[in-house]
């Protein structure tokens, strides 16, 4: 969502370029002193604790350039803690996974596989586990459940994802369903 540029983000009264007569300064390598030049801003909510602080993410050419507290947000009013202030490094981080990783049984390393391959293989495992363990009845009661599969996690997913996970697992018949709220 493009936002109108807020006052707080404006350059201050002085001109940045005029700050250093000598030219090369701390920001050598970043051609302009205006770090946010030409960025597109969007709002987000901090992924860490449950306060729900607002942030503004500035991106240029598909890359995150800056993350900062959203001053319009009524709860945090532009402030953040150390974690929220570090959100940038969640986006820009060499440790992020960018490929599907697969570890075969008894394997000692990850291998790369394609999404297509991964989804096909997982669907096969899920179907086999469901079909092998499915229970239709317990005594006279219809139970339609799949004890062979468990699902854990979800407290960091979006609501829409949580709902879909909840619906998906119930559709499979999963009752071993738990997440961070219980630990």
């Amino acid at each position: 969502m493009p936002l109108s540029r807020r006052d707080f983000l404006k350059l201050s009264g002085m001109t940045a370029a005029g700050a250093f007569v000598g030219g090369a300064s701390f920001l050598t390598g970043c051609k302009s002193a205006d770090k946010l030049r030409g960025t597109r801003e969007s709002t987000t909510i901090c992924p860490y604790c449950g306060v729900g602080c607002g942030l503004i993410v500035s991106a240029r050419d598909g890359k995150i350039i800056n993350t900062e507290g959203d001053p319009d947000h009524p709860i945090n009013r532009g402030a953040l803690c150390a974690k929220g202030s570090a959100l940038f490094q969640v986006g820009v981080n060499e440790r992020r996974l960018d490929k599907v990783q697969y570890r075969k049984p008894y394997g000692t390393e990850w291998e790369e596989i394609s999404w297509d391959d991964a989804i096909k293989r997982i669907a096969r495992r899920v179907k086999d586990a469901r079909d092998a363990t499915f229970q239709e009845k317990e005594g006279a009661v219809t139970v339609n459940r799949t004890p062979g599969i468990a699902s854990l996690g979800g407290a960091a997913l979006d609501n829409e994802e949580c709902y879909i996970l909840s619906k998906f697992m119930r559709t499979l018949g999963v009752t071993y369903l738990e997440h961070q709220a219980r630990i």
């Binding site: 006052d7 707080f8 983000l9 404006k10 350059l11 201050s12 002085m14 940045a16 700050a19 250093f20 300064s25 701390f26 920001l27 002193a33 205006d34 770090k35 900062e68 507290g69 001053p71 945090n76 532009g78 402030a79 953040l80 803690c81 929220g84 202030s85």
Partner: peptide, 22 residues
């Protein structure tokens, strides 16, 4: 030599250190 430059090199109305203080 490096130290705080009060964000004079990329100035905003309020430097981020102060704006983020909860």
């Amino acid at each position: 030599s490096y130290k705080c430059h009060a964000c004079m090199e990329n100035p905003r109305e309020v430097p981020l250190c102060a704006r983020h203080c909860p």
